[in-house]
Design a binder for these strands. Structure first.
Lengths: 214, 214
DNA sequence: GGGTAATCCACATGATGATGTGGTTCAAGG
DNA sequence: CCTTGAACCACATCATCATGTGGATTACCC
């Protein structure tokens, strides 16, 4: 099995060195770059004649200068093949999602034992993803049925109309599609607006796409 | 530590019984209901005078009768407190997401060792979530920056306009917000339509909310 | 220095959307 | 039996949107 090339970006020297020592001790793991900030990392990545190979990267969020989340974009630009693992003390939802949306592939709590982090690196390099359980829970909750404020307040017919609106159809096309008069379409939409407390197509589409309707 | 009450819905008797035997052997785990289909499960859940307690439920997808995914809704209606774990051979993306959207909290491959499944149950009962690594990867990829078809094709100003459209603002309000003439707003939007190859506000909002723009 | 692109603005026209009023039919429930 | 609500349709009016044509300024690149 080939070596896995790692990078760490972490400002706390204690954590950084303990990771470096523990993970570096494994024969299949080796460090390409160890940095204290994203800026530092990018600079070190420029230095060598040829760009170093990095398979998996451990990235802190709370960094001096550019935050880890901002850093993800820059790093992915230069290292599109690298799997980025956020390693952080915070489990705030918005940080988790911002990280994932920016392109991180895993999100691990710093409280996680080193041995588990090591396992995670192998898992990730195999094409998987490792999430701390509490973080995974937050992620799956994002898919879950929402609070259902509007649930069942729209009749089946009204839901069809909303679907059509979301598909970008005009009143005329909706009328054709559902084989009803355009005035009836207007009528439905009037009622939908009242029910959803909106007053434009745009807002309906937004609500629908945000999952605020069903 | 209190006992964890389990349920299994799985049509394959071999798998069902091996789970029952292995997991049931643990002193902290006990089975409330074991069923071969969702229908079977719901019937058994009705029988006793008082509704049985179920903390964690293992649910197969490929079931006779109602599929596991359909079943999630019915089960959550009756057992809103139960954490539902999909346990399945399939790792198809749409099934994963349909399950999560219906309210499953974890998704585990049947190839996973029994000991890991057992650990997962404890993790889940603690309020976490367990995903097989390959499945977790598919989940996080859903958050990742998309194929970037439209990336960078919109100028910063155009992106501001799109944002405003998504917020449901009219041309007039956008003009006020950006302190420009309404005709200029029209002008921007004309160009945006050409770039995105659409011809209505609705489609722009859809694209933006689907992440097809940035 | 001419080409290109982004931003800005104006005028005009037809299509679409938002909203109100008024009416019919049918099915479900008190 | 009568009310209520969903779904259906029509007419009317004003606002907003979609689209075209034409022009100005700035800035950057070859």
């Amino acid at each position: 099995m080939e070596n896995i090339h790692l990078a760490i970006v972490e400002d706390d020297p204690v954590i950084r060195e303990s990771l470096e020592t523990y993970l570096g001790a494994h024969p299949a793991l080796q460090f390409s770059i160890v940095a204290g900030s994203v800026e530092d990392f990018l600079e070190k990545a420029e230095k060598p004649a040829r760009v170093p190979k990095i398979d998996v990267m451990l990235l802190d969020i709370g960094l001096p200068g550019m935050s880890g989340i901002e850093g993800i974009r820059h790093i992915r630009q230069k290292f599109p093949e690298t799997d980025i693992v956020m390693l952080t003390t915070f489990e705030e939802e918005d940080k988790i999602f911002k990280s994932l949306c920016s392109g991180a592939c895993s999100y691990i709590s710093k409280r996680t034992p080193l041995s588990t982090i090591q396992e995670a690196i192998f898992t990730i390099h195999r094409g998987g993803s490792f999430m701390s359980p509490s973080i995974a829970r937050k992620v799956v909750q994002h898919f879950m049925p929402k609070a259902r404020k509007e649930e069942d307040i729209l009749s089946p017919r009204q839901q069809q109309i909303v679907e059509a609106l979301v598909d970008g159809l005009s009143y005329k096309l909706i009328a054709d599609k559902l084989s009803i008069s355009i005035d009836t379409v207007r009528d439905h939409i009037k009622r939908i607006y009242k029910l959803l407390e909106v007053n434009s197509k745009a807002e309906v589409i937004r609500k629908a796409l945000d999952g605020d309707i069903y």
